[in-house]
Computed example of a mutant assay.
Amino acid sequence: MMTLDRLTVLAEAWGGDLRRWPVADQVAAERLLAVDPAARAVLDAATAFDALLSTSPQPRPSAALRDRVVAEAARAGLKPRPARRFWLDRLVLASGAGWAAAACAGVIAGLSLTTYMTADIQADAVLYQATLIGIDDTEVLG
């Protein structure tokens, strides 16, 4: 059961959008909001605060702070990760997709050739057997 105090705690922790709340608390909060105007006021205040936070600029650390953090990490024995190259990842993905497409095309071509080759082999086998028993080609082929 949701109380106004519990709703206030959740609104302060998760904000005014109920979709971000724990699933178990969403339905109970909606029930309380439907009957208690004070609960609606709490949620509206949380929504306004969310809007205020979304308009504030993102803090950017200075280059000096970044250098100090990296230096401290190096002293602690940590190694910086190399910068990931997004374009290189995309290139590897594209080349893998190309190889996969080529493999699929090869399988399809192989299957279609196998069908024709199987028919040719079967026809040759019939003609060969016909010559063994002395039947003329025209009798076999009609």
Rank of each mutant, 00 (worst) to 15 (best):
V69W: 09
L113P: 00
P82S: 09
R75T: 01
R84L: 12
A101Y: 01
G77T: 05
S95L: 15
T114V: 00
E72D: 14
A51T: 08
A46P: 01
A97E: 10
A38Y: 03
P37T: 02
A51C: 03
S54V: 04
P80R: 09
A73W: 09
A105P: 02
S54C: 05
D67C: 10
P61D: 12
R68C: 06
D50V: 03
F86W: 10
G98I: 00
R75I: 02
A100S: 11
Y116W: 03
A103L: 14
S62E: 08
V69H: 15
L111I: 07
A71C: 08
A74T: 09
A73Q: 12
A39K: 00
V42A: 00
F49C: 06
Q58V: 14
A73L: 15
A109W: 04
R68D: 13
A76K: 07
S54R: 14
A64K: 07
A51I: 04
A64I: 10
S54A: 14
T115A: 07
A39T: 01
L43E: 00
D50Q: 10
A109H: 02
G110D: 00
L88S: 07
R68T: 11
I108P: 00
G77P: 03
A109Q: 08
A41N: 03
G106M: 06
A63I: 13
V107I: 14
Y116Q: 05
P80I: 06
